[in-house]
Design a protein around this nucleic acid. Structure first.
Lengths: 335, 335
DNA sequence: AATAGTATTGTAAGCGCTTACTTTTTGGTG
DNA sequence: CACCAAAAAGTAAGCGCTTACAATACTATT
């Protein structure tokens, strides 16, 4: 393979030394004459020289890179999250390296290793399938700060924490449905739920426990559209149930489809509430009542936090919990 | 910042030289005694050593990386496409570096430069906003093979080509709508369309031109949900129009919402056809009639092509055109 | 016991780049 | 015109790693 253009090529073309080129292209060239500066810039342009990051890193010891691990790039929640990361990262002069591991834990650890190899300065990991102890060990040994999402404080992870008030979201859903007169409720969620998902359930359940005459039916399924669709068949078999809490919007979308296939109407036959507030919700028919997460902010915050940690590794630990809010749309009704 | 674990640390811990460590960890250590091998592996594990990619690259001169530039990670079409890329890339031992530039051309060129810096072996670029001449020059000067999507053969780009038969897709839509008895048709599309989008229009228009008594109304809008929504208001003002061709599914989704806001029913008042066949289509009400693109395959093919080109830079150029197929669902009806 | 071969490990160069330090050139001054 | 400071440009080391080559330690053979 033909070689890439190197700094030496530029130096030669401009008739100067490599130092000169390096200094000038890094804007540290005050000491060089305007003529030399011009010659170097011209040569750079002519040869389309782009400095090699790998070589640069070796000296600078900073990649200004943050690694991002995402379970599912197809989930709009995460693409929104990523947008937040990108915006903030670029603003602060960092480059996000994004990997979607499609809920495949083997691929996840492959990518994690890849990010360490590539010397990411910090990481944002949204995963409930990677072994946190493992992550923590490797990352800690290599002094790479990171933020874990979709998980909360576990004993091993002593880093910063960023979370959303999932529990309160669950509570809000419960109270709203009660207020609308629903007493028989179903919840569609995975059996092996990550911590954040579980908290939604907890908040929901706790809020209902104290109210006499209510019944909750748990329906276990996978955390995606197909899971929601499959759950619909089980929902319709439960007599009396008038409202369903889908633990996230993807599942809610699946429910929409599944219930329709069973010939049921939303919200006439069932009130549906989701969680996340992804963009599509407003394009569904009926539009989806859901719990709004500050997804963009979440991405921005996560990025700010890692970068702050990168810059001062020893500053006091931080925990941020962002609020959520129920958004009432058309998929729910009073009975 | 505390240093990362280096090969020297491992060598010291194992009481051997760095060569020994390097050879053994790269599986070239047959010549070393089993004892030494074990010592090295133990030390590696104990210290959580991960070799520095940047240093490795400097010698190996191969990053086994392919860069991917995507206009909009939020568009399910692209997340599907990316999944195809990831699968194939991993299978062939490459790592995809993915950047979504959110239709921001400045950010796009920033990322492009970043990818060159990071020594991507090849690139897959899906963009209609980057200046192709620019891309071509920089990439060519640095001997980086690439595949351009959402564009077809332009005079500057002399690389391999991968495309989808957009023109035929447009034709299929036209013929289907004719067959269903529609004569007054609207097309919702951006005014500044990228080549692939434009071909959908061409195919559509050409197929209708020859048929007497048909009318086409072009409605220009942006290529996203919001654009489709805005277009609805214009659609309802056109008397007689009974069918709308949304140039992609995102736009179709916007139309769904906009038409509903105007109190119109699909397919009773309007038949709607989209393009892409993203997963959500089947979750919409009514499900969307659309042109199916082999998105996953597209990603896989693109990856295969760049990698093949990386391996043999001088093999004859290749052009692959994938077929598309109309999928009839519920959003269209006979009149 | 000297030699040769084999098994095992180490030395050192260099990838492309930055940077501390050194050298050369220039021009002003007595 | 000798001298010196400032301006301008270059030398060389070294980042973490791989690898061609060199060196050492054994073992077996004569």
């Amino acid at each position: 393979m033909a070689r890439k253009v190197t700094i030496r090529d530029v130096a030669q073309a401009a008739g100067v030394s490599v130092t000169t080129v390096s200094q000038i292209l890094n804007n540290k060239g005050e000491r060089f004459s305007p003529l030399t500066r011009q010659k170097v810039r011209d040569a750079r342009k002519r040869l389309n020289y782009v400095p090699d990051f790998n070589a640069q890193y070796l000296i600078r010891r900073s990649s200004r890179t943050i690694g991002v691990l995402i379970p599912d790039l197809g989930n709009p929640f995460f693409s929104q999250f990523i947008t937040g990361i990108q915006n903030k990262a670029m603003e602060l002069g960092y480059v996000p390296l994004i990997f979607g591991f499609d809920n495949n834990s083997q691929r996840a650890s492959q990518y994690l290793e890849e990010l360490i190899k590539r010397a990411a300065d910090g990481m944002i990991i949204a995963s409930d399938i990677l072994d946190t102890t493992d992550i923590d060990q490797t990352l800690r040994a290599n002094h790479i700060p990171y933020i874990l999402l979709d998980r909360s404080a576990t004993s091993v992870s002593e880093g910063d924490h960023l979370m959303v008030n999932d529990r309160d979201g669950g509570r809000q859903v419960a109270e709203f449905l009660l207020e609308q007169g629903h007493r028989d409720l179903a919840v569609v969620m995975p059996q092996q739920a990550s911590l954040n998902i579980h908290k939604r359930w907890e908040g929901f359940e706790t809020a209902l426990q104290s109210v006499a005459g209510t019944h909750i039916h748990q329906i276990f399924t996978s955390l995606d559209k197909e899971g929601g669709r499959a759950a619909a068949a089980k929902v319709v078999k439960l007599p009396n149930v008038s409202a369903v809490f889908a633990i996230n919007d993807e599942v809610a979308m699946g429910l929409y489809r599944g219930l329709k296939d069973c010939g049921r109407q939303i919200p006439d036959d069932y009130s549906i509430v989701g969680f996340d507030d992804i963009e599509i919700d407003q394009y569904l028919r009926p539009t989806l009542t859901t719990v709004h997460q500050p997804t963009l902010t979440l991405g921005e915050q996560a990025t700010e936090m890692v970068i702050a940690r990168i810059k001062s590794p020893s500053k006091p630990l931080q925990t941020i919990k962002l609020p959520v809010e129920l958004v009432v749309r058309e998929s729910t009704r009073k009975i």
